[in-house]
């Protein structure tokens, strides 16, 4: 659990503008290939064993023919007050100084307590040894560990990209600018619904979106998890008051 870390210049966060999300699943696919996630077959979905570090949830509103669809991309909320962290008996999941909740795969012994503790269902257990077709084996990302059987895994906000970009900035003696770092899902989003950045920078895009009047966090009021993913409510033009409405109650 982390309240405020004064050491680091960074506190990473993400903002998701639901009004812009078209539910195209590009983020899901990008994440899958960036992070060496094995291919989810139909069987895996049926057994509820699919691994998707980011998934797009779909909600219908209204009765046919007057229906509206709404898409909410759900990924690890990187909670400041993460329910998954205190339950781990071996400290395999912990908070970095930059505000990320990460999983140390080689430390993990597979108790699955963390996944049971997570209200957002964004931790995934490897029930099998991951497998890829022969043609895809050379496509694995060398910067990301391949998780073996018996290990919990989750969204890392593409820590390999964060580290690489900060390292390269240091190498070239440059300052990191807002927007330099982007996780795979943010990169792939065709409508820019996902935005990643440093919350400690007042002027970063994510800070501004976080302070937007449409902004809310998932399940925060009930569970006090204080997530670092901020959702911007959908704007409904048919309704008069288009600000903060029912959003938070969908779960």
């Amino acid at each position: 659990m982390v309240t405020e870390n004064k050491e680091s210049k960074f506190k990473w966060g993400m903002a998701v503008d639901i009004d812009k999300c078209t539910g195209c699943q590009a983020c899901v696919l990008a994440c899958q290939s960036e992070n060496n996630i094995p291919i989810n077959t139909e069987k895996n979905f049926k057994n509820a064993r699919a691994i998707e570090w980011i998934r797009v949830e779909r909600y219908w509103e209204g009765e046919f023919p007057d229906v509206k669809a709404k898409f909410i991309p759900i990924l690890c909320q990187h909670c400041d007050n993460a329910p998954c962290e205190p339950v781990c008996p071996v400290y395999a999941t912990y908070h970095t100084t930059e505000g990320l909740n990460v999983q140390v795969y080689n430390r993990c012994v597979g108790t699955r307590y963390c996944a049971n503790g997570c209200p957002y269902l964004v931790r995934f257990f490897n029930y099998w040894e991951p497998e890829w077709p022969e043609s895809l084996k050379n496509h694995l990302n060398p910067d990301v560990t391949v998780r073996s059987r018996g290990i919990m895994e989750k969204c890392t906000m593409c820590i390999q990209r964060i580290r690489r970009t900060t390292r390269n900035a240091k190498k070239n003696d440059e300052e990191l600018k807002d927007g330099d770092i982007s996780p795979a899902c943010v990169d792939a989003c065709p409508t820019d619904a996902l935005v990643f950045g440093n919350q400690k920078d007042e002027n970063s895009k994510v800070s501004r979106m976080k302070n937007d009047k449409r902004s809310y966090t998932l399940l925060d009021n009930n569970l006090q998890t204080s997530p670092n993913i901020f959702y911007l409510a959908k704007i409904d033009h048919d309704k008069k008051e288009s600000t903060h409405h029912e959003e938070g109650k969908h779960h």
């Binding site: 970095t96 990320l100 990460v102 140390v104 430390r107 990301v144 820590i159 580290r163």
Partner: peptide
């Protein structure tokens, strides 16, 4: 020396 430096 955070674990995420070398393990991710």
């Amino acid at each position: 020396i955070g674990c995420e430096t070398c393990h991710h």
